[in-house]
Design a binder for these strands. Structure first.
Lengths: 142, 142
DNA sequence: TTGCGAGTGGTGATATTATAACATCCTTGA
DNA sequence: TCAAGGATGTTATAATATCACCACTCGCAA
């Protein structure tokens, strides 16, 4: 992600939060920045390390609270199968995204609005879906 | 799961392993039994507890090794979003299953053969998919 | 001004999930 | 017999996540 698009994403996040009546505080903003800067899913404890240059080192709850907030705001998604987090430059309040994760380079593509499953148990009502596809992106397939 | 179908599932698992040139050892068999008996996803450390009545208590690696084996054999699936495991009475060697998990009663339904995503990034090749739907089953929707 | 209450974050401890590293034992087949 | 591989036991520790409690700030209303 370029410097410019990072700045734009952070501004967009800022107004997205404001619209929701919430605050993108410095800690939250910094965590979002770190997640967006990464070009692959980031581990919570790597964020912790990254926040640590200084005497007032961040502790786990700080990071997890920030991530919870960002996930609720739709600014970050958790990759459940990796216990890692990816940023999302285009915030959206709808439920879950469909993620395509390249096992070679770690890049993640996000898609939305997948149709309901064709073969659902009778009467089942979906509330939240986790959809993560692992494989190889066009660049890494050579 | 009834006593009868449990026994049938274990026998099926036995021959499934034999066909693959692998052994369903006592530990593995016991773990599969515990997972199948449960009517909801089971945590690894709950299995550990369940294996513990006796002086030679099982240690974490024992359980995780058994689970790894069973997953490789397609007899057990991991619910990534719960860090829990579900049994699978009809072993199948194809990749991942599509899981429907009721958040109320914990029951899990499994489906196979979902079509490829409609909106995939250009050139992406899927190797493994994690698909987990959380919601409410027909029984719990009242 | 004062005092409440909600929201946020700091801190220490601890719970939960998973693996590393190495030893032991058992089967199988040369 | 003995070496090799697979399975398991054992100790320790890594990695992930949450709890419980306190302190600070801000807005707001008495």
């Amino acid at each position: 992600m370029t410097r410019d698009s990072l700045i734009r994403a952070l501004e967009a996040a800022e107004s997205h939060c404001t619209e929701r009546g919430e605050k993108l505080t410095p800690v939250r903003r910094r965590v979002l920045e770190l997640v967006l800067e990464a070009d692959a899913p980031v581990k919570a404890y790597d964020l912790l390390e990254a926040l640590k240059p200084g005497p007032g080192a961040a502790k786990p709850p700080t990071v997890y609270r920030a991530l919870d907030f960002l996930m609720a705001a739709g600014l970050v998604h958790k990759v459940e199968a990796l216990n890692a987090f990816v940023g999302c430059s285009h915030a959206h309040d709808d439920g879950g995204a469909e993620l395509f994760i390249c096992s070679d380079c770690g890049s993640v593509e996000e898609r939305h609005g997948a149709p309901d499953p064709v073969n659902m148990p009778d009467g089942f009502v979906i509330e939240r879906s986790v959809v993560e596809h692992f494989g190889h992106c066009a660049n890494c397939r050579h």
